[in-house]
Amino acid sequence: MTYQSILVINTMHIGDLLLITPALRTLRTNFPDAKISLLTDLALADLVRENPCIDECLTIDKHGREKSLGALVRFIRRLRSRHFDLVINLHRNERCSAITAFCGARERIGYAQPGFGMFYTKTYPNLAMDDTPKELATKHQVTVHLEMLQQALGLKTIDDRGLEMTIPAAAEQEAARLWQQMVEETAHAVAKNPRADGHETSAPRPVIAFNIGASWATKRWIDTYFAACADQLIEGGYAVAFFGGPTDVPIVEKCLAQMKEKQSPHCHIFTGKVSLAVLAGLFARCALMLTTDSGPMHIGVSQNVPVVTMFGASPVPTFYPYDARAILYKTPEPCHPCGIHDCPKQGADHMACMKNIPVQKVMEGVHELLEKYKGQAARELPRENADVKGSHRCRIVEL
């Protein structure tokens, strides 16, 4: 079957959107002459706007002008005028399901909420998420997307090169400006107050990105643990930079309050100050990322950053950082993965999945990757085995 126009839909979260990028590349490889459009949330568009595998990025302002049911109906009517040959829904929620069901495309396939599937040409279960019990979900979300496309469209080639994000030019320029400003301010501060610890040189220190926030409390490692890691890294000759969105500001402030080195010129704060696209540009200049399971973790992977992460409530097989260089720590708690936003347990059992991941073990992984990649900025590192099937599985360390 050939298609002249294909629409892919995913309007959900940062990580969900980046996890469809191997599917976009696979579609482009198999349908090189088709016009491929991607529909996503307006707030996330910069993550995919410059993706070389799509011809256009369409947006829906789901928290603004297209939030109401009436606005959604009008939006669908506008889509119907495009007369797409094929629409593929890659997120199983009501909005995406409704758009797919009623967009008027010749073929409508993918994941669907109950009730909408009867208006699809063919529906498929999302075996990484809603349609599979957590204990049976053993495939990564990327793999599930690709296998669904292969089954639905009879694809000859799976072109999986990992997560991809091309940074818009303006965002790259802003990231470069902010990074240079950070370097100059650090050099000035060090010149005024040199330390006698043997770590100060004329060259900037490698920077470790800290992403300590997450949408769920049960995805966050303990703030005192992050503080200890930051102190050890600064004392060991590295710099640290805290990232995250506006909602992460109080989380970062609480962590900073527990650091001995919070006043160091090598402790930098970008939390709540930059857009997602600029965030990606800053990540690309870091040597490593210490992170929770979160959207920024997947942005870091897309920018080739070596990652060390800790998983609590999240199902590891389906959402691990999609990179073979990454190291993931977890504990064998009987309730893992709970998928609960706030831990209901009390006392020593409260957040045991995170409490029982010690700083010492995590720092072993951090130092291993820093030594292996010599503290180079992520954008200077080659992508390892990017086109080798199965090369994107991270190392999982169960404590």
Rank of each mutant, 00 (worst) to 15 (best):
L90V: 00
V144F: 06
K345E: 14
T157K: 13
E185K: 14
I396T: 13
V307R: 07
G198E: 12
A101F: 05
Q151G: 02
C53G: 07
H336T: 10
L233T: 06
R65H: 11
E235T: 10
A313E: 12
V48R: 01
L19T: 12
V397N: 10
K62L: 05
L17I: 15
H13Y: 11
E135I: 07
S215L: 11
E261Q: 15
P332S: 12
G117D: 15
A98W: 10
E66P: 00
G236N: 11
V274T: 15
G104R: 05
M310L: 14
L290I: 14
L136H: 13
V252L: 05
I76Q: 06
N211S: 09
A43M: 04
E185W: 02
R82A: 10
L328R: 10
A230K: 10
L47P: 00
D131I: 01
S294I: 02
L163N: 04
H91E: 10
N93Y: 08
K273E: 09
K67N: 04
I212E: 14
S391E: 09
V397I: 15
T121S: 15
F226I: 07
H350Q: 13
L18K: 06
G312Y: 03
I60L: 11
Q346M: 08
H83I: 00
A348R: 14
H63T: 09
F84D: 05
T247C: 09
G162H: 00
A137M: 03
A137Y: 05
P52C: 09
V301D: 12
D223I: 13
A98P: 00
G245P: 00
W179T: 03
H13G: 03
C96L: 01
S81A: 15
Y120R: 04
L282K: 06
K254W: 01
D248E: 08
D130A: 13
P250A: 12
C103P: 02
E135T: 09
P204K: 10
A71G: 04
R95F: 01
K122R: 15
D46L: 03
C267T: 15
N211M: 11
A209Q: 02
L27G: 01
S202M: 14
Q346K: 13
D248Y: 02
I109T: 00
F210H: 04
R195A: 13
P317R: 07
R393N: 15
G117A: 15
A230D: 06
P337K: 04
A98R: 09
N385Y: 09
H199Y: 11
C53S: 14
C96H: 01
D342A: 13
G198D: 12
T21Q: 04
H268V: 12
T331Q: 12
I357D: 04
L399C: 08
V316R: 06
V207W: 02
H145T: 00
D55Q: 12
I14C: 06
L47G: 00
R95W: 01
